Computed example of a mutant assay.
Amino acid sequence: MIECMKSLKKMSLSEDMLIEIFARLPAKSLHRLKCVSKEWHNLISRGVLSRKILPPLLSGLFYQNLEQSGYASVSNSKVVNSGDMDTSLSFLPCHQKFRIANCCNGLLLGWMRDYHVIPKLRHYIVCNPATKKCVSLYKVDRIHYVAGLVYDPRISNHFKVVRFLGSSRGASFVDLDIFSSETGKWVESTVSLRSEGTLLFGGQAVYSNGALHVLFYLFDVLRFDIKEESCELIELPEAANRVTFGCIGECGGCLHYADFNAYRMEIWALRDYQSNEWELKHCIRMQDLVKQLPEPDWPDWRCFHLIAFHPDTEVLFLQMKGKILSYHLNSSKLENFWTTTQTNAALKFFTCPFSPSIDKFSL
Rank of each mutant, 00 (worst) to 15 (best):
C94P: 00
S192H: 13
L8D: 01
F98T: 08
F260V: 00
N102Y: 01
I267S: 00
S29H: 11
L218M: 15
K281M: 12
A346Q: 13
Q96E: 13
S275A: 14
Y151F: 15
K34N: 04
E196F: 09
N81I: 03
V221A: 11
K6F: 01
Y151M: 08
Q287S: 15
L33I: 11
S275D: 09
T351L: 03
V146T: 15
I143S: 10
K348S: 07
P153L: 11
P129G: 00
D288M: 04
R302H: 05
D359C: 15
I53N: 15
V117C: 05
G184S: 10
R51L: 10
S14P: 04
L13G: 00
K160W: 03
C251L: 08
H256V: 04
F159P: 05
V187Q: 14
E188F: 11
Q64R: 13
M11P: 00
C35A: 15
S156D: 04
V187G: 03
E20F: 06
C352N: 03
D225L: 09
Y217M: 10
S172R: 13
T343M: 13
I234R: 07
C247H: 08
D220G: 02
D220I: 03
F98S: 12
K132Q: 06
C254L: 07
L236C: 02
R285V: 06
T244K: 12
W301S: 11
K132H: 04
F317G: 02
F91S: 11
A130E: 04
Q68V: 07
L255F: 07
I307S: 07
C303G: 09
A345S: 09
F201H: 11
I143D: 09
F62D: 03
A72M: 12
N65F: 03
E228G: 05
L293T: 06
I234N: 06
Y145D: 14
V315A: 09
R223Q: 15
V174N: 10
F98E: 03
G246W: 05
L293K: 11
P93G: 10
N276A: 08
C94K: 13
R302M: 04
K38I: 00
V187F: 07
